[in-house]
Design a protein around this nucleic acid. Sequence first.
DNA 1: CAGGTATTTAGATAAATTTCTAAATACTTG
DNA 2: CAAGTATTTAGAAATTTATCTAAATACCTG
Lengths: 97, 97
Amino acid sequence: MAFADTFKALSDPVRREILMLLRHGRMSAGEIGSHFDMTGATVSYHLNILKKAELIYEEKEKNYVFYSMNASVVEEIMLWLSELRGGDKHEEQKIDQ
Amino acid sequence: MAFADTFKALSDPVRREILMLLRHGRMSAGEIGSHFDMTGATVSYHLNILKKAELIYEEKEKNYVFYSMNASVVEEIMLWLSELRGGDKHEEQKIDQ
DNA sequence: CAGGTATTTAGATAAATTTCTAAATACTTG
DNA sequence: CAAGTATTTAGAAATTTATCTAAATACCTG
């Protein structure tokens, strides 16, 4: 999916919290949901947005779906922000003063 | 304004493009608007969102309003993304393999 | 296969977002 | 001060987003 979808996906606090939950490893849809005060259907909706943005991926096992973070897309966003902040990403370290 | 507003502000393509325009220096509201196919009122709406997110600031001069980027808030977002990607921001450089 | 658990899909609704037009501000300059 | 230029504000409309309930899938296990 497109770059723009990644930003859109990151714009919601629930989705950012989901990513934070996945920081240290995969988690089933149900376990992710148990961290929020909303229905499983709504959590599934958010997971789908993160998945389409390729910020997470899923692995089906038994009757569970496990989700994991995809760090490489996070890198892309950081790259865009680097460009914004300082111009070229290969720029020399900027010395203050 | 809050951190969450920054992500929200970055989620719109028009606003990201405005930031890119401001990368190399300030620009008046009118000049920013001339880069888009939308009314000045709509551009003003987007500028306001960026301003509330503290991604830009304004300087009024004569009957112009000049906008500039605020790089420090971009840094904050990058920090959040670093945490997401790798855990602690002071983590050692990760060696592949 | 029947019943149970986990998750997603569909459809509806409320709220938020983006955009426009028209009007209002604000400042400048003759 | 009057007229002009630049920008913002207000109000309305269209679209998108986030959420719920209910139903559908999917898979597992006795």
